[in-house]
Design a protein around this nucleic acid. Structure first.
Length: 153
DNA sequence: GTTCTTACA
DNA sequence: TGTAAGAA
């Protein structure tokens, strides 16, 4: 099912931080990080043999940053933990959505447009996202076969 | 110098 | 949660 692990140029799963690093990165004390781990709010990678220092991954960094931010906003630890869960789920969903929606960037007449794929089952119309001079985005629908001048820039 | 666990103001 | 202690 999940065999679609392609070779991405950015492999965030390889990032590893010791507790001191994660603490400095997020502004959360090492004391808190150990406590949060015990509470299962964050997870450290499995420690190898006997004595070992905790190793956190990018996912932990994101989680800690979110919880820290929420606590600064006034949330309690447990409340911040709960809210961070939904935020992370939403972000994952949005990422999944955007990843599927992305069909490449095309250059036409010096302008670039984002191909968002067909909007009809007959595959006759394509949805594009474009920006104006101020960077504001809008959408356009074009016939499917007008992709002649897609100079690979 | 850093991290770990346990305990206490 | 901060901080201290003693050990790794």
């Amino acid at each position: 099912m999940e065999s679609d692990k392609q070779k991405r140029m950015l492999d965030l799963s390889k990032l590893q931080f010791k507790i001191g690093e994660l603490s400095r990165m997020t502004g959360v004390s090492t004391r808190q990080l150990r406590y949060w781990e015990k509470k299962a709010f964050i997870a450290a990678k499995q420690r190898q043999e006997e004595q070992d220092a905790r190793v956190f991954g990018f996912d932990a960094y994101v989680k800690v940053s979110l919880v820290k931010h929420l606590m600064d906003e006034g949330y309690t630890l447990s409340a911040a933990n709960d809210k961070s869960k939904t935020l992370i789920e939403d972000a994952k969903w949005a990422h999944h959505f955007a990843r599927q929606a992305f069909h490449g960037i095309e250059n036409v007449n010096g302008r670039r447009r984002l191909n968002l794929g067909f909007i009809d089952d007959a595959h006759e119309q394509v949805l594009y996202g474009v920006t104006n001079d101020e960077g504001k985005i809008h959408y356009e629908i074009h016939p499917a076969q007008s992709n002649q001048e897609t100079s690979g820039n």
